[in-house]
Design a binder for these strands. Structure first.
Length: 197
DNA sequence: GGTGAGATTATCT
DNA sequence: GATAATCTCACCT
């Protein structure tokens, strides 16, 4: 049984939050059962000053609107045919966010397998942001939800053995921002997504 | 095990 | 009409 983490947990600087989310649990309670996974990889997006962020230069559109809200809200975003999950960070009016990129399944293996496919290796279930949201059943319907509320929430997890940082993935031509070491992941964990230069 | 191209759709200019 | 915080599959080593 899992319980949502204190909402005050989200009130810390975005880089710190990104690092501290590694090792926590992400839980989705569905009518069919509970899916739980331990977060092993995140990325921080530093709103106004980060060329790779959707909210760069305080760009405020219908899509980025939620990032200007309270820390702990859910920012879901459609990329091609996939949904990506973020945790809003920073005080109200400051559009920071943490992208949840990968997690290690802990509970609900059969539900995940049903969604992702019988033939896949277990490590291919959740080792990327699009795959993770599909495995957990997270959709755009959660845009604006809070990560401290059921049925989709962050719970206190067992932590991570060793958290390391490196450059972020898939942000192409974002100038200097490409090199910022704002990706955090558990060292030597096979559920961490592959880095593609 | 690794690299490279194409898919495919909401969102913004 | 261009773009994208990705995924999958084919082909190479």
């Amino acid at each position: 049984m899992y319980f949502p983490i204190e909402k005050s947990f989200f009130h810390m600087p975005v880089l710190e939050l990104a690092r501290n989310l590694v090792g926590q649990m992400i839980v989705h309670e569905l009518p069919e059962g509970v899916i739980a996974a331990r977060i092993v990889e995140t990325e921080a997006y530093h709103g106004p000053e980060d060329r790779a962020a959707h909210s760069y230069g305080n760009r405020r559109t219908k899509r980025t609107e939620i990032m200007f809200g309270e820390a702990g809200l859910v920012y879901t975003y459609q990329m091609h045919t996939h949904t990506l999950m973020n945790v809003v960070s920073g005080p109200v009016g400051t559009p920071h966010a943490v992208l949840i990129r990968a997690a290690e399944p802990v509970e609900g293996f059969e539900l995940i397998r049903d969604r992702r496919g019988e033939h896949l290796k277990m490590t291919d279930w959740t080792n990327g942001p699009g795959k993770l949201s599909k495995a957990l059943g997270v959709t755009m319907a959660y845009y604006g939800h809070h990560w401290g509320d059921e049925p989709l929430f962050i719970a206190e997890g067992p932590g991570a053995s060793e958290v390391v940082s490196g450059p972020r993935v898939g942000i192409g031509n974002s100038g200097e921002a490409v090199h910022y070491p704002w990706r955090f992941y558990e060292n030597n964990n096979s559920f961490v997504s592959k880095y593609r230069p």
